[in-house]
Design a protein around this nucleic acid. Structure first.
Lengths: 213, 213
DNA sequence: TTGTCAACTGACTGTTCAGTTGGTAAGGAG
DNA sequence: CTCCTTACCAACTGAACAGTCAGTTGACAA
């Protein structure tokens, strides 16, 4: 049996390694999303958690280790979801809709991810992605668009350029969503209703935008 | 007469206040675009210019002063161009196309602007914009879409959400454009040909996306 | 020639940050 | 109870950074 029997009981767990790591990761995710790697402060992350700053170095070695861990955790869900989509045998427009819905669902669940990805792309030239991740997401979308154009379902568009623009239309919403306050009275961008509406609106815009007229 | 008579001659100007300021601003624009305000290093900016770091403080008081100056210079062109557009008396679809073309032309001329705006929105919650700028750009677009929906030219869409998504489709391209290297053989995202293609592709996607089917 | 002022510099300073260290104490095993 | 491992922390260190300052250089006017 695992030595974690205490956790099953109702006693509030102090001295819980896993919980502490999770708390640090969550706080770090917020900090890295808002400030990027360099401008993120380890002391600010520690302050949010309530544990000492040295715990970051205890569990994650250094700032970069923590950053990698945040990136990995954030991406795991997204990559997994999109890889098990099985789009090959579907009509291009249906495949595109499924792809976008999966992407937007994923991102709605973790709205900080696009901002982190943005920082990663701009600041670090994506050196922590390189393989496996957002690159392959883009590649999937490009292939999808190419197929749609060739089969005449989509209009004549450049698959590469359009893939970028489509990603932009989907993800831009989340960037700065946490920040903007002055809005049409009291609508929080990240409320469940607004996220669902955004999913609908984005899909509608893109599907209409690529379809053969 | 101004005491700048030397400038008209062909002698290479050293000790030229305006030129030095311009050089600093350009270098700062690059640094701030890549790293954002906090992570940008004044020493890195100075290193790019060839002049001493203290010139930043001599001309711009401090790091924030330099940042403000960069923001102002970057925005001046954009705001001016979009304000003199006179879209009211045009049909909504034509007005939208004009708006997008002006926006994309502007941004193509200064591709670092979207990245700077992004950093500003995420890191600093847009506190250096607040009035007059990107807010009013968004507002213009929202109004445009609203008009198009009411007159039946555009399909039933949410003007607010769609405005965000449209901006994303247009601007996402520029974010990370300087950074991504692995591409369909040797295409630089910011070459003139690619920028023109992006303008066309983005406009086509959006116009098709909003039109009544 | 000399005086003066703006443009400019490199060496300095105080602070803030990532990362370290020496140690405390919880809690299970024997 | 004692021992040992592991979670945890406050106080520290050295480096990097924003910002300063005392002084130099170049241009022009008197």
């Amino acid at each position: 049996m695992r030595p974690r029997s205490k956790k099953a009981e109702n006693i509030k767990p102090v001295r819980d390694a896993e919980a502490t790591q999770a708390v640090i990761l969550t706080a770090a995710e917020e900090e890295f999303a808002q400030h990027g790697f360099t401008a993120a402060r380890t002391e600010a992350i520690a302050a949010k958690t309530g544990v000492a700053k040295s715990m970051i170095y205890y569990y994650f070695k250094d700032k970069e280790g923590l950053y990698r861990a945040v990136l990995q955790r954030s991406h795991a869900d997204l990559v997994q979801t999109l890889q098990k989509l099985e789009l090959e045998h579907l009509a291009p427009d249906i495949a595109l809709e499924n792809f976008l819905r999966a992407l937007l669902d994923c991102v709605s669940r973790n709205p900080k991810l696009p901002t982190i990805m943005f920082h990663e792309a701009v600041q670090n030239q994506g050196k922590y992605y390189k393989h496996s991740d957002s690159v392959s997401i883009d590649a999937t979308l490009v292939a999808l668009l190419e197929k749609g154009v060739n089969s005449g379902v989509f209009r004549q568009l450049d698959p590469f350029q359009s893939a970028i623009n489509i990603m932009g239309a989907c993800l831009f919403y989340f960037v700065g969503a946490g920040n903007i306050q002055q809005f049409p009275q009291g609508k929080r961008l990240l409320s469940k209703a607004m996220l669902e509406q955004h999913t609908q609106e984005a899909i509608a815009l893109i599907l209409a935008g690529v379809q053969q007229s």
